[in-house]
Simulated assay, not measured.
Amino acid sequence: MTTAANLIRIAAGEVGYAEYPAGSNGNKYGQWYGMNYVPWCAIFVSYCFDKIGLPLPIRSAKGFAYCPDGVSWFRNRGQWFYDARVGDVVFFCWRGDGIADHVGIVESVKSDGSIISIEGNTGVGNDANGGEVMRRSRTPGIILGFGRPPYTNPVASQTQASRPTTPTPTPPQREVVKVPPNYHKDLVDRLIGGKSDKAQKK
């Protein structure tokens, strides 16, 4: 069924999976999507939604591979929010420039506005390209916003009273940037085939 609970069940079942070999971006989600050896956080999210029969046809029938595409898609459909709900697609911005660097799935919401998310291609010390599926605790200051899919049983917001209705400002103690300045350019080059699979494996 296309429910938030089923999505969380699928995503949670993937926790612990790691790309192989480490640092290659080679993984089963990229194989499924047809675009392997590229950063795969968005592909992981797409995989989970496809598994519950609620694909996100953002760039293809299977989903999307570039985070900013997901942000635009949800915004254009009026499905973009700043209050977290379980099952939301959460987009992160590490540098405070308004561009999504990473994406995951909201598993739970805390009263202070922080969340527990399940994310693909993350890791301790490398938030955006860490090579594993993990549960991560995320604070509001790095959250760009939430895309809300049309589940058959929407989950009520747990934090509407405590979350702002405008984009979250950057807090004084912001999480350290863990992506290089040319991250988006390199990612786009790889997604459109600017670099060969052979080069990506090196």
Rank of each mutant, 00 (worst) to 15 (best):
I43A: 08
S60A: 12
Y37H: 11
M35C: 07
P68G: 11
L54H: 04
G30V: 01
Y37Q: 13
V38S: 06
F44G: 02
F44E: 03
I58D: 00
C48W: 04
L56A: 05
K62T: 06
G30N: 01
V38Q: 01
I52Y: 06
Y47A: 05
I58H: 00
P39L: 02
G53P: 10
S60W: 10
R59H: 09
Y47Q: 09
G63L: 02
K51R: 15
L56Q: 10
K28S: 12
A65P: 00
K28T: 05
A42F: 12
P57W: 12
R59T: 14
G30C: 05
Y37S: 14
Y47I: 08
G26C: 08
W40E: 07
G34P: 00
P57K: 11
Y66R: 12
M35I: 07
Y29C: 04
P55W: 10
Q31I: 07
A61D: 11
C48T: 06
I52W: 09
N36L: 03
F49K: 00
I43H: 01
D69Y: 07
N25A: 09
C41W: 07
Y29N: 04
Y66F: 15
K28G: 05
A65D: 06
I43L: 10
Y37V: 13
F49L: 04
Y37A: 14
A61P: 07
K28Y: 05
C48V: 12
M35F: 09
K51A: 15
F64L: 14
A42I: 05
V38W: 10
Y29H: 06
G26P: 00
Y66M: 10
I58E: 00
N27P: 06
G34F: 10
L54G: 02
I58Y: 00
Y33K: 01
N36V: 02
W32I: 07
P57Q: 12
G63T: 02
L54R: 08
A65G: 09
I58S: 00
Q31D: 06
I58V: 15
V38M: 13
Y37R: 15
P57D: 05
K28W: 03
K51W: 08
P57I: 13
N25D: 14
M35E: 08
Q31T: 11
A61W: 03
Q31A: 09
G53M: 10
I52A: 11
L56C: 05
Q31Y: 06
F49P: 02
I58W: 00
S46F: 07
G63Y: 00
K28R: 15
P57C: 11
W32Q: 08
D50I: 01
G63Q: 04
A65S: 15
Y33T: 06
Y33M: 13
Y47D: 05
I52T: 07
G26R: 05
Q31W: 12
W40R: 05
L54C: 03
W32K: 13
K62V: 05
P55L: 12
N36C: 01
F64P: 02
F64H: 14
Q31V: 10
G26M: 10
G30I: 01
R59C: 14
F49T: 00
A61N: 08
Y37W: 11
F44Q: 02
L56E: 02
L56N: 01
M35N: 14
P68C: 14
I58F: 03
Y37F: 11
G34T: 00
F44H: 03
C41A: 14
K62L: 12
